[in-house]
């Protein structure tokens, strides 16, 4: 069976392997890009008002609660 068309089978397998490699490469590249997109925001300096709001809430819970 296999000997009937070794060349065709072999080249088809190579073709499939190549396609799978290509797909994997693309997915890896997409992954890199996706993380970069996310990390770009993570690495931005946090705007002051975040910490300011939290500090105010903390103060009022300390002062107000008891």
């Amino acid at each position: 069976m296999i000997e009937q068309s070794p060349k065709t089978t072999g080249s088809r397998r190579r073709e499939q392997t190549r396609a799978a490699d290509e797909a994997r490469l693309r997915q890896q590249a997409i992954g890199v890009r996706l993380r970069q997109l996310f990390d770009e925001v993570v690495n931005e300096p946090v705007p002051d008002d975040f910490l300011e709001i939290l500090r105010r809430a903390d103060d009022s819970s300390k002062g107000g609660a008891r």
Partner: peptide, 27 residues
Amino acid sequence: IPHLRAFARTLAGDAAAADDLAQDAMM
């Protein structure tokens, strides 16, 4: 906070709306 901002950005798209969302979530 930086991670919340990044996640909010992917949900809300618009940067200002995303920061509002992240602040609300933080509080």
